[in-house]
Protein backbone atom coordinates (compact mmCIF):
# COMPACT_ATOMS: atom_id res chain seq x y z
CA UNK A 1 0.00 0.00 0.00
CA UNK A 2 1.17 3.53 -0.70
CA UNK A 3 1.82 5.40 2.50
CA UNK A 4 0.38 8.85 2.94
CA UNK A 5 3.20 9.87 5.27
CA UNK A 6 6.71 8.45 5.42
CA UNK A 7 9.56 9.61 7.61
CA UNK A 8 12.99 8.10 7.10
CA UNK A 9 15.62 8.80 9.76
CA UNK A 10 14.12 12.23 10.16
CA UNK A 11 16.09 14.60 12.37
CA UNK A 12 15.44 18.24 13.16
CA UNK A 13 17.82 20.20 15.35
CA UNK A 14 17.43 23.68 16.76
CA UNK A 15 21.06 24.56 17.43
CA UNK A 16 22.40 21.81 19.63
CA UNK A 17 18.99 20.59 20.68
CA UNK A 18 17.45 17.74 18.71
CA UNK A 19 13.68 18.26 18.53
CA UNK A 20 13.30 15.11 16.43
CA UNK A 21 15.93 12.44 16.61
CA UNK A 22 16.14 9.87 13.84
CA UNK A 23 12.40 9.26 13.52
CA UNK A 24 11.20 6.62 11.06
CA UNK A 25 7.45 6.26 10.59
CA UNK A 26 4.92 5.06 8.05
CA UNK A 27 1.28 6.08 8.14
CA UNK A 28 -1.24 4.41 5.83
CA UNK A 29 -4.31 6.01 4.24
CA UNK A 30 -7.66 5.60 5.99
CA UNK A 31 -6.34 5.95 9.53
CA UNK A 32 -7.05 8.25 12.42
CA UNK A 33 -3.77 8.58 14.27
CA UNK A 34 -3.02 10.13 17.66
CA UNK A 35 0.33 11.85 17.95
CA UNK A 36 0.88 11.90 21.68
CA UNK A 37 3.69 13.03 23.91
CA UNK A 38 4.51 15.48 26.68
CA UNK A 39 5.36 19.13 26.05
CA UNK A 40 8.52 19.51 24.03
CA UNK A 41 8.50 15.93 22.71
CA UNK A 42 8.54 17.00 19.06
CA UNK A 43 4.86 16.73 18.05
CA UNK A 44 4.53 20.19 16.55
CA UNK A 45 7.98 19.97 14.96
CA UNK A 46 6.92 16.82 13.12
CA UNK A 47 3.68 18.44 11.94
CA UNK A 48 5.53 21.58 10.80
CA UNK A 49 7.99 19.46 8.83
CA UNK A 50 5.02 17.90 7.02
CA UNK A 51 3.95 21.40 5.98
CA UNK A 52 7.32 22.70 4.92
CA UNK A 53 7.20 25.30 7.66
CA UNK A 54 10.45 23.69 8.76
CA UNK A 55 12.99 21.75 6.74
CA UNK A 56 14.71 18.59 8.01
CA UNK A 57 18.26 18.79 9.37
CA UNK A 58 18.75 15.30 7.99
CA UNK A 59 16.64 12.39 6.78
CA UNK A 60 13.59 12.55 4.60
CA UNK A 61 9.88 13.19 4.87
CA UNK A 62 7.42 12.23 2.13
CA UNK A 63 3.72 13.09 1.81
CA UNK A 64 2.02 10.80 -0.69
CA UNK A 65 5.48 9.99 -2.04
CA UNK A 66 6.56 13.62 -2.50
CA UNK A 67 8.70 16.04 -0.55
CA UNK A 68 6.62 18.72 1.20
CA UNK A 69 5.97 21.62 -1.21
CA UNK A 70 3.31 23.17 -3.40
CA UNK A 71 2.03 19.81 -4.65
CA UNK A 72 1.65 18.29 -1.19
CA UNK A 73 -0.14 21.36 0.16
CA UNK A 74 -2.98 20.60 -2.23
CA UNK A 75 -3.66 17.36 -0.39
CA UNK A 76 -2.80 18.41 3.16
CA UNK A 77 -5.20 20.31 5.39
CA UNK A 78 -3.36 21.79 8.35
CA UNK A 79 -4.66 23.17 11.62
CA UNK A 80 -1.79 25.06 13.25
CA UNK A 81 -1.48 25.39 16.99
CA UNK A 82 -1.85 29.16 16.68
CA UNK A 83 -4.30 31.17 14.63
CA UNK A 84 -2.98 33.04 11.61
CA UNK A 85 -6.26 34.49 10.40
CA UNK A 86 -6.79 38.23 10.01
CA UNK A 87 -8.77 39.60 12.91
CA UNK A 88 -10.58 42.26 10.92
CA UNK A 89 -12.19 39.77 8.54
CA UNK A 90 -15.70 38.42 8.82
CA UNK A 91 -16.16 34.66 9.14
CA UNK A 92 -17.85 34.62 5.73
CA UNK A 93 -14.89 36.47 4.16
CA UNK A 94 -12.42 33.96 5.52
CA UNK A 95 -14.53 31.13 4.21
CA UNK A 96 -14.56 32.80 0.79
CA UNK A 97 -10.79 33.18 0.98
CA UNK A 98 -10.37 29.47 1.67
CA UNK A 99 -12.80 28.59 -1.11
CA UNK A 100 -10.70 30.69 -3.46
CA UNK A 101 -7.44 29.19 -2.26
CA UNK A 102 -8.20 25.49 -2.12
CA UNK A 103 -9.84 23.58 -4.98
CA UNK A 104 -11.10 20.90 -2.56
CA UNK A 105 -12.96 23.32 -0.26
CA UNK A 106 -16.62 22.42 0.33
CA UNK A 107 -18.55 25.64 0.92
CA UNK A 108 -21.80 23.94 1.83
CA UNK A 109 -20.12 21.81 4.45
CA UNK A 110 -18.46 24.84 6.01
CA UNK A 111 -21.76 26.71 6.34
CA UNK A 112 -23.45 23.63 7.68
CA UNK A 113 -20.84 23.32 10.41
CA UNK A 114 -21.06 27.02 11.28
CA UNK A 115 -24.78 26.60 11.74
CA UNK A 116 -24.40 23.51 13.91
CA UNK A 117 -21.95 25.33 16.17
CA UNK A 118 -24.09 28.49 16.27
CA UNK A 119 -21.50 30.75 14.68
CA UNK A 120 -22.77 33.78 12.82
CA UNK A 121 -21.01 34.10 9.42
CA UNK A 122 -21.32 37.89 9.46
CA UNK A 123 -19.43 38.26 12.75
CA UNK A 124 -15.97 39.69 12.63
CA UNK A 125 -13.26 37.41 13.92
CA UNK A 126 -12.13 40.11 16.33
CA UNK A 127 -15.43 39.90 18.18
CA UNK A 128 -15.31 36.14 18.70
CA UNK A 129 -14.12 34.38 21.85
CA UNK A 130 -10.93 32.34 21.81
CA UNK A 131 -12.84 29.05 21.71
CA UNK A 132 -15.13 30.22 18.91
CA UNK A 133 -12.13 31.35 16.85
CA UNK A 134 -10.68 27.88 17.26
CA UNK A 135 -13.94 26.38 16.09
CA UNK A 136 -13.91 28.59 12.97
CA UNK A 137 -10.38 27.53 12.19
CA UNK A 138 -11.24 23.88 12.60
CA UNK A 139 -14.29 24.27 10.34
CA UNK A 140 -12.04 25.76 7.65
CA UNK A 141 -9.65 22.84 7.92
CA UNK A 142 -12.29 20.10 8.03
CA UNK A 143 -14.28 21.56 5.13
CA UNK A 144 -11.55 20.57 2.70
CA UNK A 145 -11.57 17.14 1.06
CA UNK A 146 -7.93 16.53 1.79
CA UNK A 147 -5.98 13.28 1.89
CA UNK A 148 -4.10 14.19 5.02
CA UNK A 149 -5.44 16.28 7.88
CA UNK A 150 -2.87 17.49 10.36
CA UNK A 151 -4.55 18.78 13.48
CA UNK A 152 -2.25 20.34 16.04
CA UNK A 153 -4.16 20.53 19.34
CA UNK A 154 -7.61 20.81 17.75
CA UNK A 155 -9.77 20.47 20.85
CA UNK A 156 -7.74 22.16 23.58
CA UNK A 157 -9.64 25.42 23.68
CA UNK A 158 -13.20 24.33 23.01
CA UNK A 159 -15.92 23.25 25.42
CA UNK A 160 -16.76 19.55 25.93
CA UNK A 161 -19.98 19.67 23.89
CA UNK A 162 -18.19 21.22 20.91
CA UNK A 163 -15.40 18.68 21.42
CA UNK A 164 -17.92 15.86 20.94
CA UNK A 165 -19.23 17.54 17.82
CA UNK A 166 -15.71 17.93 16.44
CA UNK A 167 -14.87 14.29 17.11
CA UNK A 168 -18.11 13.30 15.42
CA UNK A 169 -17.14 15.44 12.46
CA UNK A 170 -13.84 13.62 12.25
CA UNK A 171 -15.61 10.24 12.38
CA UNK A 172 -18.26 11.34 9.88
CA UNK A 173 -15.59 12.69 7.58
CA UNK A 174 -13.77 9.39 7.58
CA UNK A 175 -12.89 7.88 4.24
CA UNK A 176 -10.58 5.11 3.10
CA UNK A 177 -8.42 7.60 1.27
CA UNK A 178 -7.87 10.18 3.95
CA UNK A 179 -5.82 10.08 7.09
CA UNK A 180 -6.19 12.30 10.13
CA UNK A 181 -3.27 12.93 12.47
CA UNK A 182 -4.24 14.56 15.75
CA UNK A 183 -1.74 15.87 18.24
CA UNK A 184 -3.22 16.43 21.68
CA UNK A 185 -2.90 16.10 25.42
CA UNK A 186 -6.60 15.38 25.89
CA UNK A 187 -6.16 11.67 25.33
CA UNK A 188 -9.17 10.33 27.19
CA UNK A 189 -11.46 12.50 25.05
CA UNK A 190 -10.19 11.13 21.77
CA UNK A 191 -8.82 7.65 22.26
CA UNK A 192 -12.01 5.88 21.19
CA UNK A 193 -11.73 7.59 17.83
CA UNK A 194 -8.13 6.62 17.10
CA UNK A 195 -6.77 3.67 15.13
CA UNK A 196 -3.13 4.06 15.96
CA UNK A 197 -1.11 5.79 18.61
CA UNK A 198 2.34 7.28 18.21
CA UNK A 199 4.04 8.10 21.51
CA UNK A 200 6.86 10.62 21.17
CA UNK A 201 9.38 11.23 23.93
CA UNK A 202 12.31 13.63 23.67
CA UNK A 203 12.15 13.55 19.89
CA UNK A 204 12.00 9.79 19.55
CA UNK A 205 9.18 7.37 18.87
CA UNK A 206 8.68 5.15 21.91
CA UNK A 207 5.50 3.38 20.81
CA UNK A 208 3.46 2.80 17.70
CA UNK A 209 0.47 0.64 18.49
CA UNK A 210 -3.25 0.43 17.98
CA UNK A 211 -5.52 1.56 20.80
CA UNK A 212 -6.92 -1.96 21.20
CA UNK A 213 -3.42 -3.48 21.30
CA UNK A 214 -2.55 -1.15 24.15
CA UNK A 215 -5.74 -1.94 26.05
CA UNK A 216 -5.39 -5.65 25.38
CA UNK A 217 -1.73 -5.90 26.40
CA UNK A 218 -1.76 -3.56 29.38
CA UNK A 219 -5.38 -3.63 30.54
CA UNK A 220 -5.14 0.15 30.63
CA UNK A 221 -6.57 2.98 28.65
CA UNK A 222 -4.15 4.93 26.45
CA UNK A 223 -4.61 7.83 28.85
CA UNK A 224 -3.56 5.70 31.83
CA UNK A 225 -0.58 4.29 29.92
CA UNK A 226 0.52 7.80 28.94
CA UNK A 227 0.46 8.88 32.58
CA UNK A 228 2.59 5.88 33.44
CA UNK A 229 5.14 6.19 30.61
CA UNK A 230 5.59 9.93 31.10
CA UNK A 231 5.29 10.05 34.89
CA UNK A 232 7.02 13.17 36.19
Amino acid sequence: MNMILECKNLTKSYGKKKALDNVSLNIAPGKIVGLLGPNGSGKSTLIKLCNELLTPTSGEILIGGKNPGIETKKIVSYLPERTYLNDWMKVSEIIYLFKDFYADFDLEKAYDMLKRLNINPTDKLKTLSKGTKEKVQLILVMSRKAQLYLLDEPIGGVDPAARDYILNTIIGNYSENSTVIISTHLISDIEKVLDDIIFLKEGQVVYTKTVDEIRDETGKSVDALFREVFKC
Partner: peptide, 14 residues
Protein backbone atom coordinates in the same frame (compact mmCIF):
# COMPACT_ATOMS: atom_id res chain seq x y z
CA UNK B 1 -20.73 1.36 9.54
CA UNK B 2 -20.32 5.11 9.50
CA UNK B 3 -23.63 5.74 11.26
CA UNK B 4 -22.92 3.09 13.88
CA UNK B 5 -19.42 4.49 14.44
CA UNK B 6 -20.81 7.99 14.86
CA UNK B 7 -23.50 6.79 17.24
CA UNK B 8 -20.98 4.94 19.41
CA UNK B 9 -18.38 7.71 18.93
CA UNK B 10 -15.73 5.21 17.88
CA UNK B 11 -13.34 4.78 14.99
CA UNK B 12 -15.11 3.43 11.87
CA UNK B 13 -12.33 0.86 11.32
CA UNK B 14 -12.92 -0.55 14.80
Amino acid sequence: VRDLAEEAAVNPNT
